[in-house]
């Protein structure tokens, strides 16, 4: 898991790369290359040979479908009417962006993203602290136990949550009947708010471990000397947290938030299994699925997918530019 947070670069060529003006592809690239020693050049070649196949596979399985989807999104094209394919430019986008359904689904998706990520961040941080502070003897089993939900296939966990809350087979209604608003007649999946509650609870239960592991890695990178110095200066626990620990792991927190936000924004399995988008729980991925897979409207579906992709890019942009998330140097103190 910690591989998501690479260690500080130490190899000599990388150090050289970060000097101004000699970035790869820059105007002075050629001149810089001439300065490299044989060893550096050999290492670079090895690097390309190692990464090359993966790079080509990535191009084939991600770039090609993305370009294909952009191309298809300009047509009115139904899979079961191949003869009626017609170029309509941005017509599909116009239909989607002027339709309430798109904006409603975008709202539901954003709501799920914001709420789940916020709660996961708080819970994940608490779990990371527990794991960080746990005695050596229980550390291994504890980390494993916390990771279990993340290891379960989403469809399986979605079914488990569905059956737990289902009005016919579920036990939640009888166990929690003492809470106001819950009784044996509550049909959780019959209206948006309660259905979204179950979907989000399941999502939070399942992915909090992921965020807590990222945060644990961040916690481990806060130098002990700093916390010790703060303690000596008489800082309370809260002050240590606020002034020393959190600022020092800001990069780790931002990476965790970005990764989870992107994941949560593309939520599909939980909604598909529990409500199939019924009663105001439809999310954008499901909308794309409904157009391309159920309706076989390849053009319209591709346009929804392209818009979904643009939304993800915007989230990345906001995180990286506005919040200055540094994906490469996600360790404390940067």
């Amino acid at each position: 898991m910690t591989s998501a947070i690479p260690a500080r670069p130490v190899s000599p060529d990388l150090e050289q790369d970060t000097t101004p003006g000699v970035g790869p592809g820059g105007p002075s690239d050629k001149k810089a290359a001439a300065q490299y020693s044989d060893r550096v050049r050999a290492e670079r070649r090895l690097g390309w040979m190692l990464a090359g196949p993966a790079f080509i596979v990535m191009l084939a399985v991600t770039l090609y479908p993305i370009l294909q989807a952009i191309y298809e999104s300009l047509f009115q094209f139904r899979l079961t009417a191949p003869g009626e394919r017609e170029f309509i430019g941005l017509g599909n986008y116009l239909v989607i962006l002027t339709d309430n359904v798109w904006w409603k689904d975008l709202g539901v998706t954003l709501l799920i993203t914001v709420i789940t990520v916020a709660i996961e961040l708080v819970l994940g941080f608490a779990l990371a602290l527990v794991m960080h502070k746990a005695l050596k003897a229980v550390r291994g089993p504890l980390r494993t136990a916390i990771l279990v939900p993340y290891g379960i296939i989403t469809v399986v966990s979605a079914f488990a949550w569905f059956y737990a809350f289902d009005i016919n087979s579920g036990y939640v209604n009888s166990w929690f009947a003492w809470l106001p608003g819950i009784d044996s007649d509550l049909n959780w999946f019959a209206q948006g708010p309660t259905a979204l509650f179950v979907i989000m609870a399941s999502e939070i239960w399942k992915t909090t471990p992921f965020i807590s592991l990222l945060l644990l890695a961040g916690l481990a990178q806060v130098p002990d000397e700093l916390t010790e110095a703060a303690k000596v200066d008489g800082a309370t626990w809260w002050e240590q947290m606020r002034k020393v620990i959190i600022p020092n792991m800001k990069a780790a927190i931002m990476v965790a938030v970005l990764f989870r936000a992107l994941d949560a924004f593309r939520i599909f399995d939980n909604v598909f299994i529990m409500t199939n988008g019924a009663y105001g729980t439809e999310v954008l991925s499901l909308l794309a699925y409904r157009q391309s897979i159920s309706r076989l409207e390849i053009g319209l579906g591709s346009a929804v997918s392209v818009l979904l992709f643009l939304c993800v890019l915007i989230i990345c942009f906001i995180a990286i530019k506005l919040f200055k998330v540094d994906l490469a140097g996600a360790q404390g103190g940067k």
Binding site: D166, I167, N168, S184, D185, L186, N187, F189, A190, Q191, A278, Y279
Partner: peptide, 15 residues
């Protein structure tokens, strides 16, 4: 019944 909004053929049989 209270489960009507999510009731399919199978759940209606069980009820």
């Amino acid at each position: 019944g209270p489960g009507l909004a999510t009731q399919n053929e199978n759940t209606s049989m069980i009820n």
